[in-house]
Design a protein around this nucleic acid. Structure first.
Lengths: 107, 107
DNA sequence: CCTCATGTTCAACGTTTATTGAACTATTGT
DNA sequence: ACAATAGTTCAATAAACGTTGAACATGAGG
């Protein structure tokens, strides 16, 4: 289920970053998450996120670009994604969701 | 985390029923969930739900009455609980969340 | 063609998690 | 005091999960 998928901190971080990227309407590729885990571990989490319908992948050359399935999610689970992302952003500092992939100052 | 707690089907069912009970402003005791799992298994899930701040227990004699920590949750995670419960209610039939404890017709 | 970069798949490992039954505590009613 | 009821705690087991590295596939570029 979707909640099970979002309950993992790495997957939550992935979804959170994809949600941030939505604003710029650009996509992220696997390598952009390399701060969160190793390659194979990320592939595992990506698969889970795809399975439960949270995101989709567009293949372009050797890159895979991903984005949230925002519309489908908002239809099936109204308000859920926003509530989760909202809550995650409040805990972002505490959970170090950002520290590895977005913040470059604290290192 | 809260999402991890809600990702278990039994715990989700418990939370869902507690949310239904909110409307009647009455509480439920452990035995009311006996359709979901055995006593000791329920106690395990109750502990988890208490740990992550989803519900609280009021001891009255040999009974434990429980309810959602609605206000705390809405403060910390605005909209999350409602979104989850809303989504759960749509899947209630499919997930058989109700069948054992509330519905008496479909059996 | 060869090599490098990007990701995925597979097998293995260790940890966490859910589930069960038995033993235990505490309260109510007789 | 005794038995019955309502839950919790504990130890043990099985399944699920996340993590890792090695092998593999595929496209880009010299």
């Amino acid at each position: 289920m979707v909640l099970d998928c979002l309950s993992d901190p790495i997957r939550l971080a992935i979804v959170y970053q994809l949600a941030q990227q939505e604003r710029v309407s650009s996509e992220l590729c696997c390598g952009d998450f390399s701060g969160l885990a190793g390659k194979s571990n990320l592939a595992y989490h990506f698969a889970k996120l795809r399975e439960c319908g949270l995101m989709l992948t567009r293949v372009a050359g050797t890159n895979r670009f991903m984005r949230l399935r925002r519309e489908d999610l908002d239809t099936r689970f109204p308000g859920l994604l926003d509530a989760v992302i909202n809550s995650a952003s409040k805990d972002a500092d505490r959970l170090q969701l950002l520290s590895e992939c977005e913040v470059t100052a604290a290192g």
